[in-house]
Amino acid sequence: MAVPVPLRSIQHHLRTAQEHETRDPVVAYYCRLYAMQTGMKLDSKTPECRKFLVKLMDQLEVMKKELCDHESVTQEIVGNAHVENYALKMFLYADNEDRSGRFHKNMIKSFYTASLLLDVLSVFGELSDENIQHRKYARWKATYIHNCLKNGETPQ
């Protein structure tokens, strides 16, 4: 289903979920959970948004049943560690490429995905100051490097 306009801010988190469907279903599950939780705060009243959120909930319930033998899904404290480690791995990969002067689409995408996964961590509670900083940095780096490459400039 196309994401309704009032829920556009969760679109990229849902895309990340799709991209991780087979690669890491636990990450896909929590991306959708974040999207659900955030979507309900954004707009669960208008018929289009409600219909979308009901379908998303159906999807989440099916996923939870399919992943019932994954501790990361049945216990959110384990899920928290799983998503955080994954986000950090993405961040460190991109950061290493950046510091080595290797600028390319993959590392831009990794910075951006890391920032989205740090958003997802809010499902488990308030973000730590460190994660807030990482998220801001990763999001800024993704935009900065993307713009540099688009304009033919070498990022610093």
Binding site: L33, M36, Q37, M40, S44, K45, R50, L53, V54, M57, L60, E61, K64, E76
Partner: peptide, 27 residues
């Protein structure tokens, strides 16, 4: 019609909140 519509929407929202809470083992 307005109050019935609002009541139905509110019930649907509660159902969604309940399903989310159940999903997260909060109920």
């Amino acid at each position: 019609t307005g109050s019935v519509g609002a009541s139905v929407a509110s019930a649907e929202q509660d159902e969604l909140s309940q399903r989310l809470a159940k999903l997260r083992d909060q109920i």
